[in-house]
Design a protein around this nucleic acid. Structure first.
Lengths: 109, 109
DNA sequence: TCGAAGCTTCGGCATCCGTCGAACCTCTCA
DNA sequence: TGAGAGGTTCGACGGATGCCGAAGCTTCGA
């Protein structure tokens, strides 16, 4: 895959972004991403197959939540923090915080 | 329908809430609700049928975003603002703001 | 140059979602 | 008490979604 499609910041829509964030696996990815700046697809710990993970990365990228760049044999994924903040101010942080809280909750249970 | 089910605040989950907010029609409902405190189901201007609207109200209610009380022949729906804020601090306001901006955008186009 | 690492794509499957119209329920009021 | 207003439920339909394993594509390194 040569050309990775990334929507422009003015093409992002709220429903698409919220939908991208409404899946537990994707939320986990985003949470991890928020702690690491940039990461390869394979460094997510999720209980789904490689192809499913790839699918989730695609959904996040096409909704405009993440950016993916190719580096040798692997892809490096990062959050489009600044652009998200520009287009939907204040949106991501509470989601991340709530997601962390929910993850702690699950760990405690 | 006698017993409307409303999840307790500690039963709300982030994916459910985000999913409930990821549909344009539901976003419009929530936006309207944010301006009016309480409203009846029929006072939404949406280009979908009555049954579809009813479905969307149900999704919002079951995700914990709204509260519905019966008053005579109609239902009065309101946002569960305080509880949402308690469970997911800071989440709703940016969503509302982004949704308003998107709606203005659409109106300008 | 060939093998392996790292992803994506494909095909398929079961489930969910948004949508509609028709039928139904319940409360109010004439 | 019966008609109507305001919603919900039902059944159906087409399309999207999440999931998987197998196969394919690229790039690096031996």
């Amino acid at each position: 895959m040569r050309n990775l499609h990334h929507p422009r910041v003015d093409e992002l829509t709220l429903p698409d972004v919220l939908h991208a964030l409404s899946d537990p696996v994707r939320l986990q990815i985003v949470r991890t991403l928020a702690e690491r700046e940039e990461m390869s697809c394979s460094s997510v710990e999720a209980s789904v197959s490689k192809s499913t993970l790839s699918h989730h990365f695609k959904v996040l990228r096409e909704a405009g939540v993440t950016h993916t760049r190719v580096n040798g044999t692997h892809r490096l994924v990062s959050l489009r923090l600044d652009e998200l903040e520009e287009r939907f101010p204040g949106l991501l942080e509470p989601v991340l915080e709530a997601s962390r809280a929910e993850s702690r909750r699950a760990a405690a249970a």
